[in-house]
Design a protein around this nucleic acid. Structure first.
Lengths: 253, 253
DNA sequence: GAACTCCGTATCACTCTATGATAAGAACAG
DNA sequence: CTGTTCTTATCATAGAGTGATACGGAGTTC
């Protein structure tokens, strides 16, 4: 799938490609499918899943393979040790309580973002907790700040091509580029009904003292509950919160 | 670490060994430590973590490496697709509500068990949700049912050697063996102050129609809230719940 | 019940990748 | 500035990973 035929550590790369396929599949996958989707020979895929299962990262069921329970414990370990997450916790809680909105912490993983932590402002009991959810980088405030943060915006926009928002709006490469440039200028992203209809979000990039990107911080709620977002104090709050988080994380080596 | 010098898929095995080291470490690890603990050459460890980071399963921080965010999304995927977990959910909820105790679902991963799902009977808000926690097989009801379920109990007991409970009780190999034999006879395990002082648990093995082990189901609560556990209806309830779960999981291929 | 199909597993020779010793390069402390 | 510690790069060799092929087994169809 992703990884080309790159030489070094090929088998290891492939193993994680397979794992990613398992992750993205929303149902058990048969070996043949797995091989196909990961672009591997069946025999190779078979050897890989065997190892995955042995270590608990894949499970075998009646109708195919799924991700395995070991991922849960690794995730647990991540949650307990990640400096970013640990440092961000109190900030999320504070701002969620103060605003009544939902505070979220994302990290970039390749061309996607993963929800690392979330604190609900309201007290509606969130049942299917979406922590760990993998979302695209582009539609959505907390994703686009990654794209706007560094690199050539025109190239990024070109690569995305064209995107359709949940609101129905369609953006071509030029539109995306303009959007990203604005985000870069303003130091935060505002998204109204982009990824989810009825949801508005404000997000900013989290960087450490050395300027390296650590993650992104977002504040979201029902669109109807917002007035004019841009003129409110929220963007400033979000930027400050993101800075506060970044400042407390020891700079990376 | 674990994996010997086994031939096939060596590098992949090693990669997961490193991942396991990261998981077990409760703090960021420097490359040198990582290499040491996983029993690899520094250069090899370095190549491996590079790949791990690239795929998001490890993160680099100021003072070392930790597990990475991709584990969260894989765990999320596991939670959404695991037939065992999906099927067990309603049973956990029902029995937790009916008894007011905590219902837990475990899966065996190598020589440990991982908490897959949990429903609290009481309504105390559980803050540090321990899902994903990795626990030993022996002390604890929901772990020992795995050991008692299959294989040579004497050998297992011998391998464990000697174990100290949280209550202070010390069991030698003979004692462990007797314990496991009883568990096998009775079809469920009862643990009083074994792993955690003040906690009593009852657990049973979950097997599919073909008899293959899928996981274990446990019910736990404060020791003082129990009367004579063995004479209560709970062991029967637990056995029945475990059977109910197993019966609803499609038999594995 | 038999023939067929499809999916998973085992086997094997060849090539290319993973490996570890060594050395160069950073970070850091004194 | 010098010595130490940790990380990254280089390179030849051995041996692991690979995929074509073939076998076995389960499920399906007639």
């Amino acid at each position: 799938m992703t990884t080309a035929k790159s030489n070094p550590m090929r088998s290891v790369h492939r193993a994680f490609d397979v794992l990613k396929v398992l992750e993205l599949a929303q149902q058990p996958l048969r070996l043949t499918d797995l091989a196909q989707r990961s672009g591997l020979h069946v025999a190779t895929a078979q050897r890989v899943v065997t190892v995955l299962i042995e270590h608990g990262y894949a499970s075998r069921h009646a109708n195919g393979y799924t991700a395995g329970p070991a991922a849960l414990s690794t995730a647990h370990a991540f949650a307990m040790t990640s400096p970013l997450r640990l440092v961000a916790r109190p900030v999320l809680e504070e701002i969620a309580t103060a605003t009544g909105l939902t505070a979220s912490l994302y990290v970039r993983v390749q061309e996607s973002r993963v929800l690392i932590d979330r604190v609900e402002g309201g007290r509606r009991p969130q049942y299917s907790l979406p922590i760990g959810e993998r979302l695209p980088l582009y539609p959505g405030a907390a994703g686009k700040v990654f794209l706007a943060g560094e690199g050539d915006l025109a190239a990024e926009a070109e690569r995305l091509g064209s995107v359709t928002f949940a609101s129905g709006t369609v953006l071509d490469a030029a539109g995306i580029r303009a959007d990203l440039e604005r985000v870069r200028r303003e130091g935060c992203a505002i998204s109204v009904d982009e990824r989810q209809f009825g949801t508005t979000a404000i997000a900013a990039l989290i960087t450490d003292n050395a300027g390296d990107v650590l993650g992104s911080f977002g504040l979201s709620g029902a669109t109807r509950s917002f007035g004019d977002v841009r003129d409110s104090a929220l963007p400033g709050d979000v930027r400050r919160a993101a800075q506060a988080i970044g400042a407390r994380v020891p700079a990376a080596g």
